[in-house]
Design a binder for these strands. Structure first.
Lengths: 309, 309
DNA sequence: CTACTTCCACAACGAACAGTTGTGTCCGGT
DNA sequence: ACCGGACACAACTGTTCGTTGTGGAAGTAG
């Protein structure tokens, strides 16, 4: 039993003629006749009185009409409920402080009519995030992932590059440098707490340290951002790396300095994972936004080789 | 878009597996897969997460499920609304005093669970009544009509024979006769007011008067049953004809007598007209009732030749 | 009264669809 | 590594739904 049959019945009931209903529906008068006949056969009751001047509802047709309309309305609502864009886009931004969250927030500020939810899923790695995307827990997730290693059913695009900056306290030797080379950091202690092994972050810093001979303490307990800031402010040798788009509170609470890195600029690349075929309009708008108004990446960049730049 | 697709989706959502849903619906797993795929293509959104241990709803599926159920419920109600038997059977009994109304009333008393409405449509003739049946104004109508002159789309069955009786006042020559022959009535005045030309009643009395040489005043103004009863009670020559099943109030108000007619017994035959294919269960029950428990008709009867007995 | 128009139904035919069976792929458990 | 379960894909087939062409019934105009 097709809803088209009900739609046809309602059209005939309202127009009083098969031909006019057929024109409205864009089919032939004979097709309308067939549909009505099939519907009547299905409910085992005639619904219309055919005259030579058109058709009108008989008793059963009058009883049936409001129900038919109700079914159509319910059907309409059902379609509406899952129409791409009817619910907010759910984006996994990993962490509300870092570049992806900031980028999404900026997107939202410039497109306030776009409804979206920024969530933090705390997935261990890109594969888990991809799983979450496939399962529909979120519509999209920012991850560092080689675009050629995307699982089936996932579409991915590198949309956000975060150049790294050195974050140091006022007593650090590079505290007043306008910029620094990654190679300048050899010998310095760089502490990045809370990076768990098996994540892309760990792999990224592993590759970075190998590429420039850095000593990165990527592991160790994470006592929170505050503890890190305190340690940086008090130390003349400790430093950490942050994305240029990351947002922390240190300017207000600690006298910390961001030292841009150049020649080359290490860049953490975010790929936006989404379900292939996801039609959510906010998703495409977000992609467009990131593609055009994303932060400009310097020419001379370093990325891990597994990113397949 | 088929409601079967929604039914399939709900089945999968509730069972968690295509195969079990397929068994419930009596189709193959592959057919379920196709239906779901078509549904998802139609709403342009995936609804299920497929795993190797079954399928479960994703976010959109969870949003869609209650709407799908609502559509199915509305659809169910729509079918219910016109299911044969869901509304009372409407029977045109012509006039609440005469035999058809009495027969229907008797049927209703012995089957109180059968819901029916007895209505009086006041159609001029059998053709108009057939029209009303075809248009669904009523489900059935009692009429005197040759069964071979039934319009297309109408099914007809002779289900109620009303033997005629003479109704006279106490001063009438036949007032104390146990019965009378139609031929005995020749010369007597018989008055049947309110019969309009063009009706089957008029044709019937016309044929009756010709067959037995009666003088029937079938025409004339109808001042109501009371006026007729008064006239009969006061007159030694006036008589009228009534069906044996007709119900009047004269026993209480006038001293009138019913004189059965025999050799032969004039019989007014009622054919029950109904729409061919009308599935109303009360209609078939009524037919059965009339076929079996209808009043027994004497052997020696007279009917107009156009009844094609 | 006849001819014409209007409206719906029937018939024949082709395309599309939904079902079937058989097979493949992916994934998790042993 | 293998096996079994669960879903998807492919090929085929019968049904269905649409089309065009035509017919019949009933009203309408000349």
């Amino acid at each position: 039993m097709d809803v088209e049959a009900l739609r046809t019945f309602v059209a005939v009931a309202e127009t009083g003629q098969f031909q006019i209903a057929a024109d409205e529906l864009g089919i032939s008068q004979q097709a309308v006749s067939k549909r009505i006949a099939t519907l009547e056969r299905h409910v085992k009751v005639t619904l219309l009185v055919r005259t030579s001047r058109g058709s009108r509802l008989n008793l059963d047709g009058q009883l049936f009409l409001p129900h038919a309309k109700k079914v159509l309305a319910a059907f309409e609502e059902a379609e509406q409920a899952v129409r791409p864009g009817s619910r907010p886009l759910r984006v996994d931004v990993l962490n509300r402080r870092i570049a992806p969250a900031q980028a999404v927030y900026q997107f939202y500020r410039s497109h306030p009519e776009m409804s979206l939810d920024a969530v933090t899923l705390n997935n261990e790695n890109a594969a888990q995030a991809a799983q979450a995307v496939l399962e529909g827990t979120v519509d999209a997730s920012f991850r560092a992932l080689p675009v050629d290693q995307v699982p089936a059913g996932i579409s991915a695009e590198r949309l956000l590059d975060a150049p790294l900056e050195l974050l140091v306290g006022p007593g650090h030797p590079l505290a007043n440098a306008p910029w620094a080379r990654p190679a300048d950091l050899a010998g310095h202690r760089i502490w990045i707490p809370g990076i768990r092994p098996g994540t892309e972050w760990a792999e990224f810093y592993q590759a970075l340290s190998e590429a420039f001979g850095l000593s990165i303490d990527a592991l160790g307990p994470n006592f929170g951002d505050e503890a890190l800031m305190d340690a940086l402010a008090d130390s003349a040798s400790l430093a950490t790396l942050v994305g240029s788009g990351d947002r922390y509170l240190w300017p207000q609470t600690h006298d910390l300095r961001r030292i841009p890195l150049r020649e080359p600029t290490p860049v953490y690349t975010h790929v936006l994972l989404s379900r292939a075929g996801d039609q959510h309009p906010v998703l495409s708008a977000l992609r467009d936004h990131l593609r055009t108004s994303g932060p400009r990446t310097p020419d001379d960049v370093w990325v891990p080789d597994w990113i397949n730049r």
